[in-house]
């Protein structure tokens, strides 16, 4: 029932004209692999992010924040759940294979989840800075993504992340308008999270980036990073916080922010799951997976008996 294309060039012409690929279509295998890996990375990151968020449910200050953290955890685990289904439909790996790869340290997830959130201010920095960076990236993917099921999920994820950002802004204001101790606490968190957030957009895109060519991404990493820097350098310095980059400056002519040189070594370490907190995070996730195995087995046995 699906469509097919005579050649890769013809398929690329279809994508360039704004065509949307559906799971039933006979897409080129290279496209299938790229879309799959991209969605798998996103799903893994939502899951690892959700688990990180969950650690803060008992520690959130006050009932209202606890409710927000609970809801964010459910959002992120729910996004992972949906994304794993969509990735599995591509037929490259099953959902269980993706999860087992992740827990056996063979999977990849976003760099920001390879670091430890030390204090509640770190959680606020994540909600205020990292979620905003994720939103900028996801909006750009949503705008021109050529894979239909992923594009439709992103539309909802973007709406929900926008709502997380409101929480982030509200929590940041508590620190910005708070006591000297609170301001120091957020500054220390900013010192930890500024560079990982810049890294999150990825190293500068190569001219022949397959993700751009296949219309999975629509904007280069450095352009998205620049968008974030322009907005957040202004906001943070406006609140009197100091990003930990001695070379960060405003270009006197264009009025635009220019960062110092970015050291990519920490990002590369996270690609190999060798970030500061990678081992603990993966082991923790694997422990949950093993501890809940009996639940899955019980449900499967009920389903088998019913069939």
């Amino acid at each position: 029932m699906g469509r097919s294309w005579g050649s890769v060039a013809e398929f690329e012409g279809f994508l360039d004209a704004g065509g949307i690929v559906e799971p039933v279509d006979a897409m080129p295998d290279e496209y299938r692999q790229h879309v799959f890996r991209f969605i798998e990375l996103h799903a893994n990151s939502e899951l690892m992010g959700g688990l990180t968020e969950r650690d803060w449910i008992p520690k959130a200050p006050g009932l209202r924040r606890k409710l927000a953290v609970l809801a964010k955890t459910q959002d992120e685990i729910g996004h992972a759940h949906l994304l794993y289904m969509v990735a599995a439909d591509l037929g490259v790996k099953t959902r269980v294979e993706m999860l087992e790869d992740l827990f056996a340290n063979r999977g990849r997830f976003h760099n920001v989840f390879h670091y430890q959130a030390v204090t509640w201010a770190d959680q606020v920095a994540i909600a205020y800075l990292v979620d905003a960076a994720a939103l900028i990236s996801q909006q750009a993917v949503f705008k021109n993504c050529s894979y239909g099921p992923y594009k439709r999920i992103l539309r909802r994820i973007v709406a929900e992340e926008g709502f997380h950002m409101r929480h982030g802004e509200e929590m940041l204001l508590v620190f910005a308008e708070g006591t000297a101790v609170q301001r120091e606490m957020f500054q220390a968190a900013l010192d930890r999270w500024w560079w990982p957030t810049l890294h999150m957009f990825g190293p500068p895109s190569k001219p022949d980036d397959a993700l751009l060519r296949w219309h999975i991404k629509s904007e280069r990493n450095e352009d998205l990073r620049d968008k974030w820097v322009q907005k957040y350098a202004t906001l943070l310095t406006g609140y009197g916080f100091v990003p930990p980059d001695p070379d960060l400056r405003r270009d006197p002519e264009s009025g635009r922010w220019v960062t110092g040189e970015i050291d990519w070594a920490p990002l590369k370490a996270t690609f190999a799951n060798l970030g500061p907190d990678s081992a603990r995070r993966v082991a923790d996730a694997a422990r949950h997976w093993n501890e809940t195995r009996w639940v899955r087995e019980a449900l499967e046995s009920v389903a088998r008996r019913a069939a």
Partner: peptide, 9 residues
Amino acid sequence: FGPVRCRSI
């Protein structure tokens, strides 16, 4: 369960 309490998948 979906991403929010008011939606199933």
